[in-house]
Amino acid sequence: MSDGSLMLDGNAAAGVLQEVFVSDATTARGACASCGTIGEVGSQRLYMAPQSPGLVLRCHGCEGVLLVLVRRPGHVRLGLQGFTWLEIAQPDAPA
């Protein structure tokens, strides 16, 4: 791509998201606030530029922004504006 940015799958964000969520977030299911499509994070579209501090996850149904993550030293800013809900498996947690 000419601008050097890159379209990948949500599963490519597994490491970065696991830093925040502790458990694996790519198998989490979420509902898109724009079109209602429900899908696993790993199946969504991930946009990032090499060496950039941020990434954008977009819905594979409507391309609406689901999640924005920006890293800077000592902080992670997480924008979850495009998810109505996100369901993360916690098999070890008490019921």
């Binding site: 799958d9 599963n11 597994a14 490491g15 694996d24 790519t26 198998t27 994070v41 790993g42």
Partner: peptide, 9 residues
Amino acid sequence: LRGPIGGYF
């Protein structure tokens, strides 16, 4: 290295 990472694929 760190991992394993990713449970989707």
